[in-house]
């Protein structure tokens, strides 16, 4: 699905990482491991073509993503380590906005089910600013289900999650993989998610 060849990135004449190789087939999970400041977020952003690499190339389904950028973007969901939910609006409004801007054809019952598993159903009419950090994080993961894309790119998804949610994430990843999807995520440790490839930065 996605192939990264000899990728290097430089910032201010300083090498952040060099010669990263990665190949991800459909139905696979890969993890980026590394210390703080080792360039995990940079690598993910390079894959998203936000940061320009100093060398190397990235292919999506055999084509350079630079040349087929929006085709690539149509197939990915990116979750940053920031919360993109809008603070001033309620959880319900946020879900509505996401459903609309991503042109999602997900049904109401599906969302209710997902909310129930994420234990967010009681907060539906609360503003996002009143939620706790872990809860906003979980709300963010709702986007994975709403967008319903093939490739998930997640930046530090496991930080500030409790044990139950961690288990839930594991399950979600495995479900997604069984549906021919694939996942790249970054983390400084692996809490026991089955991964097909591990990249150490």
């Amino acid at each position: 699905m996605i192939i990264v060849k000899d990728l290097s990135v430089e910032r201010l004449d300083k090498k952040i990482f060099e010669n990263i190789n990665l190949s991800l087939a459909s139905g696979c999970i890969s993890i980026l491991k590394g210390k703080n400041g080792s360039g995990k977020t940079t690598l993910l952003k390079t894959i998203l073509n936000i940061i320009e690499p100093s060398a190397g190339s990235i292919y999506w389904k055999g084509k350079l993503i630079k040349k087929n950028l929006y085709d690539f973007y149509n197939n990915i969901t990116y979750i940053a380590d920031k919360t993109t939910s809008l603070n001033r609006l309620t959880v319900k409004d946020n879900i509505n906005i996401w459903k609309k801007i991503f042109l999602s054809n997900i049904s109401v019952s599906q969302i209710e089910k997902a909310l129930k598993t994420l234990k967010l159903q009681d907060y539906l009419n609360q503003k996002v600013s009143t939620l706790s950090l872990g809860e906003t994080k979980k709300l963010e993961f709702l986007r994975l289900i709403i967008e319903n894309k093939k490739l998930w790119i997640l930046d530090e998804p496991l930080s500030s999650l409790d044990e139950d949610s961690m288990e839930l994430m594991k399950q979600t990843f495995e479900d997604h993989c069984s549906k021919e999807g694939s996942v790249i995520f970054s983390s400084h440790h692996n809490p026991g998610i089955y991964v097909t490839e591990e990249i150490n930065l």
Binding site: L48, Y70, Y73, I76, Y78, A80, T84, L86
Partner: peptide, 13 residues
Amino acid sequence: YENGNLLIIHLNG
């Protein structure tokens, strides 16, 4: 920009 929505909108096409 600060809450990352700009990036999301960009990735949305």
